[in-house]
């Protein structure tokens, strides 16, 4: 189980980091979501991986640490709100500037014929 969880976190993080390097806002937003999933799993694992032991004193002989679960809940709420914010932000940015590139290029760069980054991605 350790291998499975560890490689799951690793793959999520790697995919998230790769997507963050992209030039357009949509992959970046997806990358941020993947990273936050990875960190939620990671926080959960800091309470040690055990099966069938509820975090309630008295309900099991050796209850697991409940604190990581509380931390994960807080982290989930925050990352949910942040994802909603950045989706709105990238949408507004796209609607106002006419381009969904992450860098500070002006819309003229896109309007003047083929956008170099777009041509590159197509290739």
């Amino acid at each position: 189980m350790e291998t499975l969880v560890a490689s799951g976190i690793g793959i999520l993080t790697a995919a998230g980091v790769y997507l963050l390097m992209r030039r357009r806002t949509f992959p970046v937003v997806i990358g941020l979501s993947l990273l936050s999933y990875a960190v939620n799993l990671f926080l959960f694992a800091t309470g040690r991986l055990v099966v069938d032991r509820p975090p309630i004193v008295g309900a099991s002989a050796a209850p697991v640490d409940p604190l990581p679960q509380a931390l994960v809940l807080t982290a989930i709420v925050i990352s949910f709100g942040m994802t909603a914010l950045i989706v709105v932000l990238s949408l507004r940015g796209f609607l106002e500037s006419g381009s969904d590139r992450v860098d500070m290029s002006s819309p003229e760069d896109d309007a003047a014929g083929v956008d170099p980054s777009f041509a590159e991605e197509r290739r």
Binding site: L20, L32, I86, S90, G93, V102
Partner: peptide
């Protein structure tokens, strides 16, 4: 401001 904001938030 929105473009710069996106970078800052990210």
């Amino acid at each position: 401001r929105l473009k710069a904001g996106f970078q800052y938030v990210t």
